[in-house]
């Protein structure tokens, strides 16, 4: 039963990883950029939501509603100032510039908010510990279930946006071939900026859940980036439901690892990631179709 419980908790943890991963995956799918500042931006939005919640004395969920337009605007600015310019200078430049941005963000947050670890858990009352008891002493936290529901809703929402809306079709067209997209009247710059704004909205949601379910500090970002990246790669780069499955595999592997040793939590996750990669290389050539329907080009 202990074992079963660990798997169950791993699934809920995986739902958080799917949340944090979907923005990274989305941006990669649209622009072929891996944003190395992704985790730092998630922590930044966690600080934003925390500050709003404390300043106005409101629930973090209301604070998130206020943070969403701010992060969307930040996404627009990020695209116009950094990503667009990077994209023009070749495939390596986005990595260099977003890594530089991550260093700036992490240390600026340290400068502004100090080294103390923070959490939104005190701001959400019962939600942080309340749960339901199941048969065999299994406990299911309300926040964990909420995370899973939000993750599924967010991924479905993104899928629906891409499939059924004009903006979604324009995003897919640009993801596949930006030059031809321009030839059917699409302003690729505008679409990219909109896509980055959408990605940062998902990051704001993920950052809020990060802050509600655990503690964070200004240097938590890189770890979140690594978890998000591992979830994406395990699930198959750029695949929608793959991201959720990847997150769950990662969460379960970490939880099982933690049963072996205190450091096993992280080691278990990294090993699962490496094993999946090794398996993929062994079956090279068979690739997943991502949520843009394009074969993931960046995978060898």
């Amino acid at each position: 039963m202990m074992f079963f419980d660990q798997i169950l908790q791993g699934i809920f943890l995986g739902a958080y990883y799917a949340l944090i991963a979907c923005g990274l995956s989305f941006l990669f799918g649209v622009m072929r950029i891996i944003n190395l500042a992704h985790g730092s931006i998630a922590v930044l939005s966690a600080f934003l939501v925390l500050s709003l919640a404390e300043h106005f004395g409101i629930s973090p969920f209301f604070a998130l509603l206020l943070a969403v337009p701010v992060m969307a605007a930040a996404g627009f600015v990020l695209q116009r100032t950094i990503l667009e310019r990077s994209l023009r200078s070749g495939p390596l430049t986005p990595l260099l510039s977003t890594f530089g941005l991550a260093v700036v963000l992490d240390n600026s947050m340290f400068q502004s908010f100090g080294a103390n670890t923070r959490s939104l858990a005190p701001n959400i009352g019962d939600l942080s510990f309340a749960g339901w008891s199941g048969p065999g002493g299994i406990e299911v936290g309300q926040l964990a279930v909420l995370t899973l529901v939000v993750a599924v809703a967010l991924l479905s929402g993104l899928q629906a946006l891409l499939t059924y809306t004009p903006l979604g079709r324009a995003i897919r067209a640009c993801a596949e071939d930006p030059e031809t997209a321009e030839l059917v009247g699409i302003d690729a710059r505008h679409v990219y900026a909109a896509a980055t704004a959408i990605a940062l909205v998902t990051v704001a949601i993920a950052g809020t859940f990060l802050a509600m379910r655990s503690t964070f500090d200004p240097y938590t970002g890189p770890t979140q980036l690594i978890f998000a990246f591992e979830a994406i790669v395990i699930g198959g780069t750029g695949s929608l439901w793959g991201t959720l499955i990847g997150g769950i595999v990662l969460g379960v592997a970490q939880n099982l690892g933690s049963q072996v040793s205190p450091q096993g939590f992280l080691i278990g996750g990294h090993l699962a990631f490496l094993l999946v990669l090794a398996a993929r290389f062994a079956f090279a050539g068979r690739d997943w179709r991502g949520w843009f329907g394009v074969r993931s080009r960046a995978v060898a």
Partner: peptide
């Protein structure tokens, strides 16, 4: 043999994961 099969951003973060793993080990 393993690392060089990763491309672009995957190599970048993949190496980071390896560094984290080496640290933990």
């Amino acid at each position: 043999s393993f690392a060089l099969r990763l491309r672009g951003g995957e190599f970048a973060i993949g190496m980071w994961v390896l560094a984290e793993l080496a640290h933990l080990l």
